[in-house]
Simulated scan of single mutants.
Amino acid sequence: MEIRHLKLIKAIVEEGSITKAIDKLHLTQSALSHQLKEAEYQLGTQIFLRQNKKLILTKAGEKLYETANDVLAKLSSTQQEIKQMILGEFGTIRISTECYSSYHWLPSVLKQFHLLYPNVDLQIIMEATHYPLQKLQENIIDIAITSDPIQEDSIKYLELFQDEMLMVVSTNHAWANKKYVVAEDFATEHLLIHSLPLETVTVHQFLLAPAKVTPKKITPLPLTEASIEMVKADMGIMAMAKWAIQPYLKDNSLKTIKIGKNGLKRKHFIAIMNNKIYPNYFNHFIEFLQTEIHQQWTI
C-alpha cells in the first residue's frame, strides 16, 4: 500500500464522488480506477461498495480511511517540521495599533524581525486601528498595541513602553512660554485630534473629561503632517507623544508644553488572546518587539 493509494481513498470519501476526486487529484478516470483496483488487489478485499450510484466504504475501507487520515496528517506535519529545519519558522502575524502615529516606529521594527525570520509574514492591518482590541477578539488581528486596556479575562496584556504626551503649539501661541497647561486652558482653544471617537483621545480621556472641560472647537484631522502645518499657522493646537514630535521641532516654529504639572504619561501594551496557543515564532516576535523598543526608544 502506497501513499498515493491513501490519498486516493481519502479524496473519494471526502469529495463524495469519483468525478470530484479526479479533479482534486488531477488524475484521469482510468488512472483513478486503476489505482483503486490496485489498492483492493493488495488488500485482498473491496474498499468501496456501489449503492444507488454512491460509493460506500466497506468495513475494511473504513479502517483504511482511518489509517489514511492518521498517516497523511503525520506526513504533512513531518514535512512542515523539515521545512522549518531547512528554511526556519514560517507563518503569519497580523498586527495593529490604536494610534496611526505608532506606525512611525512599527515598520522599522517589523523589518528587523523579518531579517531574522524571513518566512514569517508580518501584516499591518490598518482597518483595525480604531478598534484593535475588538478586532483582536474577532480574530482579525493577532496582536494589538494599545495604551487603553480594557478589563477582559480573554485578553492578556504585556507592557511594551511608556511615553509622555505633550501639547504642540506655534511659537506665536499664547501657551508658548508656559511650563505646563491644565484642563481649563483648553476652553478657548481649537484642538486638533487624529480621529474620533473622542473617548479614545488621550488628552480628552485623562485630562479634559475628568475636569469636564470641552475645547472651543475640535477638529479630527487624520494626517499628522496636515495637523502640524495648521499648528505652525497658529490655527490650532494638538497633542503628540514626545518621541513622535521630535522630527518636527527642527525648524524652531513649534513649541511643546507639558500637560499638567506632573506631565501626562501613558503606558503601551501588547495585547494577545489569553488562552490561545501560539507558535514559537509568535512568542519570539513579542520578545523581539519588547527588546527593540527598549533599546531604540528611550521614551
Rank of each mutant, 00 (worst) to 15 (best):
I125F: 02
M230F: 08
I22L: 12
I56T: 08
I193F: 00
L87Q: 15
P132C: 04
L289D: 02
H190D: 08
G263D: 11
A128W: 00
A239D: 04
M238I: 09
N119F: 13
V201W: 00
Q79R: 15
Q35V: 10
L115P: 03
H173Q: 12
E287P: 02
H204S: 05
D70I: 12
K37S: 10
I193G: 00
G91Q: 02
P118W: 10
L192T: 05
E189L: 13
E2L: 13
Q42S: 12
D153V: 09
E189F: 07
G91S: 08
V201H: 01
E38N: 11
K232E: 03
I143S: 01
I257L: 02
K83T: 10
K242M: 12
S76A: 12
L191A: 06
L115H: 14
E229T: 12
H294L: 05
E164G: 03
F90I: 06
D163E: 14
H104M: 15
N252C: 04
L160Q: 04
V120N: 01
T92A: 06
S147I: 07
L289I: 05
F269N: 07
E138R: 07
T202N: 11
S170F: 13
D142P: 05
Q123F: 13
G263E: 00
I93Q: 03
K178V: 02
L43W: 04
G44T: 09
K265V: 06
N280E: 13
V213W: 02
K261L: 11
L36H: 00
R4F: 06
T45P: 09
T92H: 14
H5T: 10
L133K: 08
L110D: 03
Q295K: 14
D70K: 15
K37F: 14
L158Q: 13
E152H: 14
M235D: 12
